[in-house]
């Protein structure tokens, strides 16, 4: 049992990291706390479902299309809405929250509620890991999670766009001087973050069903991981995902699954009370005693 909990805890950690990576990337680069993130996550899943079930498109093509579509929507949201309230964090939060709300509740209105909304797994079956059975999809999550982290690292260190992203993240004004179009990069970062949300959704959601509530809890989980890790810090996201992931799994196993979500919420509160900049955050203004 304990060994199983450890394995599932690890899988859960990677899941959380997957969910949080996109949110964190967007915030780190453009400084936009994208509260529509959960909605984009669910949007990708429903898009894939629609493509698969209604349009009967090939599975791999439809998930690729769904991810592209989601990131396109993310870019549009920035370009036409958030750009106009840039630099006003509260307006950004309210506007993006409004968008997320509209998208999620629109799906509810269309009647996307129920158990038939499931995505197929990549490969069916399960394997035994030292006596614990674990389905292949969960292993795939771990694989994709690790692959994504490596990809992101390579991307931000070796491609021109990636380097521009890092430049923006470090010092926007200087980046502007060096000929980096900050609006374009911010749009791209939102598209990229939303795309990551799509990838996360398509990898994770086959394990359960696609539901509106999943969007809200994805947003909360992403927020929890990013705040605990320190907004904008990738290392922080990974460490926080492991911490919260194991904490959630242990809570679910030994106390009760009702308490699982409470773990993330308590984590947000505790970290904001004791170290508001997060474990690896560099927000200097939060260090100040005010």
């Amino acid at each position: 049992m304990f060994q199983g909990t450890l394995i599932y805890g690890f899988v859960n950690s990677v899941t959380l990291a997957l969910i949080a990576l996109g949110f964190n990337l967007t915030f780190g680069i453009s400084g936009v706390a994208n509260f529509a993130y959960g909605a984009l996550y669910i949007l990708a899943a429903y898009t894939a479902w629609i493509l698969l079930t209604w349009l009967k498109i090939n599975y791999f093509l439809s998930i690729v299309l769904a991810v592209i579509f989601t990131s396109f929507i993310g870019g549009l949201i920035y370009r036409f809405i958030l750009l106009r309230v840039r630099g006003m964090p509260i307006s950004e939060v309210i506007a993006s929250f409004g968008i997320g709300l509209a998208i999620l509740e629109f799906f509810r209105f269309l009647g996307f509620v129920g158990s038939e909304y499931t995505l197929p797994v990549f490969i069916d079956g399960s394997v035994s890991l030292g006596g614990t059975y674990i389905d292949v999809q969960r292993l795939l999550i771990v694989g994709i999670g690790i692959a994504l982290v490596i990809f992101l690292w390579l991307f931000t260190h070796y491609t021109k766009t990636g380097l521009a992203f890092r430049g923006m993240a470090q010092e926007e004004r200087t980046a502007l001087i060096l000929g980096i179009n900050s609006d374009k990069m911010a749009t791209l970062s939102l598209a990229f973050g939303s795309g990551l949300a799509g990838v996360a959704a398509i990898t994770i959601l086959p394990l359960g069903q696609v539901a509106i509530e999943g969007g809200y809890s994805a947003l909360l989980n992403a927020l929890a991981v990013c705040i605990v890790g320190g907004l904008g810090s990738t290392v922080g996201v990974l460490v926080a995902a492991v911490l919260i992931g194991f904490a959630q799994t242990f809570t679910a196993t030994y106390i009760g699954s009702h308490w699982m979500m409470i773990v993330s919420l308590v984590a947000i509160l505790v970290i904001l009370i004791f170290k508001p900049s997060g474990l690896f955050g560099k927000q200097k203004e939060l260090e100040e005693r005010i």
Partner: peptide
């Protein structure tokens, strides 16, 4: 709620 959301935006 969709309409509230759009109002907000």
């Amino acid at each position: 709620i969709v309409i509230y959301g759009l109002f907000l935006v």
